[in-house]
Structure formats: C-alpha cells, structure tokens
Amino acid sequence: MFEKYAPTVCFTRLDEHTFQVDLRIEARHLSHSFKLGEEQEWERRDGSKLRITYQLEGDNVLHQIIKLPDGKMAYFRRLFIDRECIMTVTLDDTPHTATIYYEQVP
C-alpha cells in the first residue's frame, strides 16, 4: 500500500562528526543519530540486519553505504544545494541508477 503523503526527512548536524536523521511518514516518526565513518547495524522489520555507514564529502554531499543481508551494496548520494536535495541511488550488480529530487518544505 502506498503512503498517502510523501515522507519528510530531516538531517541535522549535531557536531563535527555526528548527525541526526528524522523520518516522518504520516503518523510515524523515526529518529536516530550517527557518526560519520562509523558502521552501524540496523534491524529491519523482517529481522534481517543491515550495516550502514555515512561519509561526508565537502560540506554538502552525504554518502550512505548500505550492506544488504545478501552481501550486495546499495549506495545513496545526497547533494544538498540551496533548498534542494538530489539523491542518487545505485545498487551492486545492476546498471540502473535512480535519481530523486527533494525540495525543502517550510
């Protein structure tokens, strides 16, 4: 089932190496903090585990690398420009790339 409203994602820099990400999907709110370059383990609803690492490139590009349960990798690159974010997603073993455009909401 598709969500009725688009999710809202907010990245907040807490200090030089730590960020917090907040995700709101309708009535649900998820939040967690992460340190750049530090791998974290996440458990999905189905119980499978993901390993996630974030890296910052300059002041406006955030890379997210996800090690999937099957050993493949997913790469998310978020480019923040003014009031926009351009996210590019690539997966191992596929020639396809997805590009998603976000805009800042008031």
Rank of each mutant, 00 (worst) to 15 (best):
20 Q>S: 06
7 P>E: 11
80 F>I: 01
44 R>G: 11
29 H>F: 02
65 I>P: 03
65 I>T: 13
48 S>N: 15
27 A>C: 08
30 L>P: 00
66 I>Y: 00
96 H>W: 10
48 S>K: 14
58 G>Q: 12
55 Q>K: 14
60 N>Y: 08
43 E>T: 13
96 H>C: 12
6 A>S: 15
39 E>G: 08
18 T>M: 05
17 H>C: 09
76 F>V: 01
64 Q>A: 05
39 E>F: 07
77 R>N: 03
1 M>G: 15
78 R>K: 01
42 W>F: 15
17 H>R: 13
35 K>D: 13
33 S>I: 12
40 Q>M: 13
56 L>Q: 11
15 D>Q: 12
98 A>K: 11
50 L>C: 06
103 E>H: 11
84 E>M: 07
35 K>V: 07
84 E>H: 09
77 R>F: 00
63 H>V: 05
99 T>S: 07
43 E>R: 08
29 H>C: 05
20 Q>W: 01
41 E>R: 08
4 K>R: 12
17 H>G: 05
45 R>T: 14
22 D>F: 05
104 Q>Y: 02
104 Q>C: 04
99 T>L: 05
85 C>V: 06
100 I>P: 02
14 L>C: 04
101 Y>R: 15
49 K>S: 09
70 D>C: 04
98 A>Y: 11
88 T>H: 00
47 G>F: 09
96 H>D: 14
16 E>N: 13
81 I>R: 06
24 R>W: 09
20 Q>K: 09
95 P>I: 03
19 F>V: 03
40 Q>S: 08
38 E>K: 15
72 K>R: 11
13 R>I: 06
23 L>D: 04
84 E>L: 07
41 E>S: 07
28 R>L: 11
77 R>A: 01
59 D>R: 12
14 L>T: 09
92 D>E: 06
25 I>R: 10
49 K>T: 12
26 E>C: 06
50 L>N: 09
40 Q>T: 07
99 T>G: 01
96 H>V: 14
88 T>I: 03
82 D>C: 02
86 I>Y: 05
27 A>T: 14
80 F>D: 02
99 T>Q: 07
6 A>E: 14
62 L>Q: 02
36 L>E: 06
75 Y>G: 00
73 M>I: 15
5 Y>V: 05
22 D>Q: 14
40 Q>D: 06
104 Q>H: 08
70 D>N: 13
35 K>L: 08
53 T>H: 01
15 D>A: 09
78 R>T: 00
2 F>Y: 15
104 Q>S: 04
58 G>D: 12
52 I>V: 13
94 T>Q: 08
19 F>A: 03
100 I>L: 10
8 T>G: 01
25 I>N: 10
106 P>L: 07
43 E>V: 12
17 H>M: 13
51 R>V: 13
85 C>P: 00
16 E>L: 14
49 K>I: 13
11 F>Q: 04
51 R>F: 12
99 T>I: 09
18 T>C: 08
50 L>A: 09
33 S>G: 15
57 E>I: 14
